[in-house]
Design a binder for these strands. Structure first.
Lengths: 234, 234
DNA sequence: GAGTGGTCTAGACCACAAC
DNA sequence: TTGTGGTCTAGACCACTCC
């Protein structure tokens, strides 16, 4: 891990460990330079990271302050899948229905930019967070990139498996979502009624070199799944 | 506007103007330094901005590439309210029900961190995007900060009015959302049926100095409102 | 090995806030 | 006026990709 990330991590840990409440002013930049023995630019970069994560806010001419922490029980919508989750981790698990190798449908093929005849892994699983049924996930992974999957792997975090075994890192993703009425099959999986509401999220994940490797649809349980985004305008 | 923002803007305009397709490689950093006559750090900062906006992606050791543009018909969920909207602007309008000065409820009071006896503007309006009914918005503004509002102002963009007249800039926001079933009153406003699905978003907006000034609830029309987030992991 | 983006530095100067 | 964060620079070196 590089210096600015180390510094950011330490400042964040300090804030959470001391349980600093919102609005609390941190040491100024010169102070932080002294404390962490790095250059001004490195401190500034670390602070900007924390600002983007919603941990602090900076006011020119005034100081650096602690931001309100996300309320408990809400999932961070920007890192719900494979993006940096850190301290405030929640316990998640899965019930796997199937792990099959199939020919992709036209839609999947397009989203994953598959060649003709290319095959994909199809994984269908129920996702739980802290033992509550959160959603039904249907994912397609390009076999070309993710050579092997099985039920055991898929019960845990697919993303960390991929990262460790294939040295594939997530670079970015496109996320499209809307509210829908449940069809009979999905309602049954989620233990809900037909026409009950749900959030349907379609997301394509790309490696850090820009290659799509995963297309997933998650249908979230409307009573159990709540989300949060801590935005900032900079 | 500062240099790195100028550079970012120009690069973005160039991409959209030339209609560069996804995966197209841009000039390298040294080339961009030459082209825009700024330092390396300024170019890097501009590129990181564009990366965060989902316009490009950078691959270490390889190059800078154009990212796929958001599909039409989807609202950018991260800048749906007052955050930097630029080129790809869509036409929005509002039907205003009322602009009242009221005593805030406990919930509103807490979210806006109001003093006792402080009053707020309550604005209720239907939001349209390209003449489609998108959602019902109920907003509360602290009168202490936004001294005056009327129907005419509220029919247009409240945020630009606030920025121009009170020199208040949005710093950040906390956004909490979930899927719900509509109650009778809201369903009626949205021209939908009771128990139809909807996305309910509660958002608190803070000034750049960290003071809350607006608490809004938007209930989105499940057929007309679709969203997009172009995420990235850096 | 050549070419690319990513990090880090020291230092100057600017913009804004608070007193 | 002083103190704060924000920008910008020139230059060094590191990490990764691709030939």
């Amino acid at each position: 891990m590089v210096k600015y990330q180390e510094v950011a991590k330490k400042i964040k840990q300090m804030i959470y460990q001391k349980q600093l409440s919102k609005g609390t002013q941190l040491d100024n930049i010169d102070g932080l330079i002294n404390q962490y023995q790095v250059s001004r630019s490195t401190i500034v970069k670390a602070l900007n990271c924390l600002e983007r994560q919603g941990v602090i806010y900076q006011v020119q001419g005034s100081g650096i302050f602690v931001r309100e922490r996300k309320k408990r029980g809400y999932l961070n919508f920007l890192q719900s899948h494979g993006f940096t989750v850190d301290l405030e981790d929640v316990y998640g698990s899965s019930t796997v229905f199937n792990v099959d190798i199939i020919k992709p449908s036209a839609k999947v093929k397009e989203n994953l930019q598959c060649d003709d005849n290319e095959e994909v892994y199809f994984v269908k699983r129920l996702r739980y967070v802290e033992d509550k049924l959160y959603g039904l996930e249907q994912s397609y992974y390009r076999k070309k990139l993710i050579c092997y999957l099985n039920k055991e792997i898929v019960e845990n975090s697919i993303f960390s498996y991929i990262q460790e075994n294939y040295n594939i890192n997530i670079g970015f993703s496109d996320k499209y979502f809307q509210v829908i009425k449940l069809d009979a099959e999905t309602a049954n999986c989620l233990e809900l009624q037909i026409d009950d509401p749900a959030l349907s999220v379609e997301e394509t994940f790309y490696t850090s070199s820009g290659e799509p490797f995963d297309f997933s649809t998650i249908t979230y349980h409307y009573e159990n799944a709540k989300f949060c985004i801590q935005n900032h305008s900079k």
